[in-house]
Design a protein around this nucleic acid. Structure first.
Lengths: 150, 150
DNA sequence: CATAATGGTTGGTAATACAAACCATGTCAA
DNA sequence: TTGACATGGTTTGTATTACCAACCATTATG
């Protein structure tokens, strides 16, 4: 019988394992895990400082420092918001995008041996279950309905 | 079609989510994520400094500091190894065990809403799949012990 | 027995993170 | 309209995390 505790253990163990991989890859590019996340967020959208901090669960001041260092490295830029003089918009530079791409490739490569252990049906199922876990699914677990294969 | 990238995204997203919960709970007890891990390891076994460092992927010196601070808080102790005078064994104090128990309860509570979203069959399946992902499948080589692997 | 290897600690530096204080800009109320 | 308050960021100060290099003590090896 799989208990809630077993699920907890598996989630925690996997989380540390994945975090470990990301930390290692990040380190190879002189990036901390947090910086990696910032890069990930800013890949497809710009964001204001407080927005980033809230998303990452960090203090504004911490965010300020992170942006400082990344900016000093030429990875991102600060811009003004014409509608509200207080707001600082943060967005990536081409160099930032380039680095983000390289990092993503490396992560993909690093996780490949892991995902390769799964066949197609297992992948479908894992993603579906993790979506439920991270509240990404509006579905309630009551009905054993057919999986919405696409 | 679920691709390897989808799996990667789901794993990374979930990892951050779980790490976020652990960081929050840890913070409520003035413990960093790393300290939490140390506590988790030492719950059921004592370990030498280098062993802990290797397990967590940290430098010996980092480990030394972590132990210092935890020891100053009365959570763990350093002891000598009678067979090898160089070795320092680290193990938890009663206070450490107590804190570890409280933290575990809190984590359980914090993750309950998540695991509760899954029914029995889904739990079984998720744990099974995560075990595959973290190479814990049936034919796993070694149990946690004094493995000399690097 | 001299030398090398191993296990930990110490010292130095940078990054991460928080809290408190601060400044500039916006908003709201009397 | 102006004073008070709120909001968005930055700065400053401190603790922790983490690495590396250098260093002792102890053990192993030539």
């Amino acid at each position: 019988m799989t208990t809630a505790d077993d699920v907890m253990d598996a989630l925690v163990r996997t989380a540390f394992e994945v975090a470990g991989v990301l930390t290692r890859i990040g380190g190879e590019h002189d990036m901390s895990l947090t910086q990696l996340r910032v890069l990930g967020i800013l890949r497809d959208r710009r964001a204001r400082v407080t927005e980033l901090a809230a998303y990452l669960g960090l203090d504004k001041s911490t965010m300020s420092g992170l942006i400082d260092r990344a900016q000093r490295r030429g990875l991102l830029t600060r811009g003004k918001n014409p509608e509200d003089g207080r707001v600082v918009e943060v967005y990536m530079t081409p160099a930032g995008h380039e680095l983000a791409g390289r990092v993503e490739d490396d992560i993909r490569r690093a996780l490949a041996p892991v995902t390769d252990r799964l066949d197609q049906e297992q992948r479908d199922r894992l993603v579906e279950l993790l979506d439920i876990v991270s509240a990404r699914s509006p579905r309630t677990p009551a009905a054993p309905g057919p999986t919405t294969a696409s």
